[in-house]
Computed example of a mutant assay.
Amino acid sequence: MLTLGMGKATGKIILMGEHAVVYGEPAIAFPFSCTQVVATVQEATENQLHSIYHEGLLSEVPTGLTNIQQLTTRLQQKLHTPNFQLSIKSTIPSERGMGSSAAVAVAVTRAFFAWQETILPKQVLLDYVNFSENIAHGNPSGIDAAATSGNQPIYFERDKDFQTFPLNIDAYLLVADTGIMGQTRSAVRSVAELFETSPDATSLHIYQLGQLAKEAKEAIIHNQPEQLGQAMTKAQKHLQDLTVSNKALDTFIQLALDEGALGAKLTGGGRGGCFLVLTQTKQQAQHIAQKLKVEGVKDTWLQGLGVYQHV
């Protein structure tokens, strides 16, 4: 056993397919390296958590950290560790659709296995993260676990092995934070309720979102930014009809389109959180970012898709 175990994970961006991926349709996601989580764990007299949300005994964490409490309990039992002090530091904004809870679970699991000097197979890591995500959100698709634990873009279908997927398209992706906490659990529940009240219409929306994810994949493969942008904007309309957007997202997204964006849509669970804006050039993205900040967007990040690196 090491004196200190450390684990890291990145944030994630879902480019296409959120919500539909829960029902078996494909999605495209990639790790977002400009935001990350670092977890460290070491021996202590009692199980403790040190984070911006809780300082003290693990047994006294607030309800919102129940997933971390149960995940660490399971890790302690499975790995037969002594009592511990867990520290978590994150630059991923929470409840913004950027995979914060999954990334924390990835980093924590890696830290525990590193601490015990135990090999951590990929599937074992994903099992632990999905266990935590099920507590945090209910019925997770697995895409957050896959994207935050990897270092390459992925093409994901539930209950199938995810495929690494090269993003190589001459365009820029602006990621913008509305400043409003997303409501993943309620959004997922609302879509499930729509399947009960309007099964045919809801099934069609889900199917179309899957088709648009496939179109987006082809647009990326063939370096067609305009087609990718069109697919993104069409996807946003379906997400609106599924009630997982909100007024703030709709307003910001329309502003971006009015300013010449190739496409725009929410990302993640919706009803707040972040959204994506695709532009042809870096200058366009910077111009739109300035406009959005004037209108109240909290923060923005810029991702060059042609070279897959944060700009």
Rank of each mutant, 00 (worst) to 15 (best):
L71F: 09
T72V: 10
H80D: 09
T81K: 06
S90F: 14
S90W: 09
I92W: 01
S94F: 13
E95N: 13
G97D: 00
M98Y: 01
M98N: 02
M98D: 00
M98S: 03
G99R: 03
S101G: 11
S101N: 10
A105N: 13
V106L: 06
T109A: 04
R110C: 05
A111F: 03
Q116N: 12
E117L: 12
I119R: 13
L120I: 09
V124R: 09
L125E: 06
L126F: 08
D127W: 09
Y128R: 10
Y128Q: 11
N130P: 07
F131Y: 15
F131W: 08
S132H: 09
S132E: 07
E133I: 03
G138N: 07
G138R: 05
G138S: 09
G142M: 07
A145T: 08
A147M: 08
T148M: 06
T148Q: 04
P153G: 15
R158N: 05
P166R: 06
N168G: 10
I169L: 13
I169S: 00
D170N: 14
L173H: 01
D177S: 04
D177T: 04
T184E: 03
V191A: 01
A192K: 15
E193W: 09
E193A: 15
T197C: 07
S198F: 10
P199L: 13
A201C: 05
A201I: 11
S203C: 08
L204Q: 08
Q208P: 03
L209F: 02
L209E: 00
Q211P: 04
A213P: 01
A213Q: 02
